[in-house]
Amino acid sequence: MPVEPWVDTNKTIKLTLLVFGLGGLFLLYYLFNPSQSTFFLSCPIKMVTGYHCPGCGSQRAVYQLLHGHILAAFRLNPLMVLTLPLLVYGLGLTLYNYIFSTSHRISLFYNNAFIFGYFAIAILYWVLRNIPYAPFTFLAPTE
């Protein structure tokens, strides 16, 4: 039997914590620009190896996106910006399934061609954005 979310105390507590957590993250990335603040941690891979990983630039890109600067965000991490709608949809559906005890699935996520294609692109992107010549430098985040 599916339990209504407002009856299930455990679910209500978890969802309340989630709302506060997301609200906190929103404020953090809206109010502070990671390029100018010192308390944001940069990527450990970048710190240790000096190479950009596929995620480098994401925090700064999120700051730009929250201020409506889509091009600036795209310049910092194009793959992340392109993936974001898919992530929002996937995580949103996961949340929906959790709240309403449903089991909707995204058929794209069960398509092996998509899965291997996406991860091949991510690995290729990782290599290409570390090549220090144009046009590959456009894939690397600006300083």
Binding site: C53, G55, L87, Y118
Partner: peptide, 11 residues
């Protein structure tokens, strides 16, 4: 979706 998230946030 979590695998994609971990890839985008640091492979």
């Amino acid at each position: 979706v979590w695998a994609i998230l971990s890839t985008v946030l640091c492979c």
